[in-house]
């Protein structure tokens, strides 16, 4: 569903990604692991072109999404981001009500009917397993929620524009263990309908939830395979060193 061919990326003159090739299957969870600064977050943000925002970024190669190159001139980056949603490292709900947070995306894309919006809000919040916790305070400011609830709210907000793919950039790094396990359960339940790509520092997390794992080091993708295989018998020495905790 997403095919990456020979992707390179530079920040100014520094090359941050080197010739990445990978095919990401749909309705599965793919984990990107590797030490800090290995390029996994940069790679993730390339997939919905959030890197476009950084001045001086240069990209070569292609990313095919449903067979079309997302860097092609005719592609509308806003529509691309509607289909490839994102959850960030730090929960970042808007300083608005819970309802308005969820309705923000659909409203942006032109839905104004109250009935339709109510329906989307409920479905999205249910989808992100947070409906029961917030249904009585939809009009309250989202910043009153706990960190874990905020992160699930952000995932619900991403679901509200009906994406096919959800990118998660270390979504649990700012959360406590209980909230983390809730997000992990959520990710597993979401893969029935969505393709999920998750960057994580936490190797147990990758083992617990992902179907495929890619190991990044210094801007290169060292190894990419089924999660079980990567963690049971890595082919590359560097992958083995990393997952057995030699560096990182």
């Amino acid at each position: 569903m997403i095919t990456v061919n020979d992707l390179c990326l530079w920040y100014g003159s520094a090359q941050a990604l080197h010739h990445i090739n990978m095919a990401i299957p749909e309705k599965s969870i793919t984990a990107l692991i590797g030490p800090s600064g290995c390029g996994k977050s940069t790679f993730l943000k390339t997939l919905n072109r959030m890197n476009d925002l950084i001045p001086g970024v240069k990209i070569s190669g292609e990313v095919l999404y449903n067979g079309e190159n997302i860097f092609a001139p005719g592609v509308d980056v806003n529509m691309l981001r509607k289909e490839i949603g994102m959850a960030f490292q730090k929960p970042n709900p808007f300083p608005m009500s819970i309802y308005d947070n969820i309705a923000y995306g659909p409203r942006t894309h032109g839905i104004t009917s109250r009935i339709q919006l109510d329906d989307i809000v409920e479905r999205s919040l249910r989808g992100a397993a947070i409906w029961d916790e917030v249904k009585d305070r939809l009009k309250k400011n989202a910043h009153g929620l706990s960190g874990g609830q905020q992160q699930r709210l952000c995932i619900a907000r991403a679901l509200a524009v009906e994406p096919d793919v959800i990118l998660m950039d270390e979504p649990t790094s700012a959360l406590d263990p209980i909230s983390t396990s809730k997000i992990e359960e959520l990710a597993i339940s979401l893969k029935e309908k969505y393709t999920i790509i998750i960057v994580t520092h936490n190797m147990q997390q990758a083992v617990r939830i992902s179907d495929k794992t890619a190991f990044f080091l210094l801007g290169e993708m060292i190894e990419y395979d089924d999660t079980e295989k990567i963690f049971a018998m890595p082919r590359d020495k560097r992958t083995e060193d990393y997952i057995t905790g030699r560096f990182g």
Partner: peptide
């Protein structure tokens, strides 16, 4: 905070929409 604007852009809002619907209310 930049995070608000990033979140809006990641939902497919254009920069101008983001400024007026997220940054200004914030």
């Amino acid at each position: 905070p930049k995070e608000y604007e990033e979140a809006s852009l990641a939902l497919g809002a254009t920069p101008v929409e983001t400024y007026f619907r997220v940054s200004v209310p914030a």
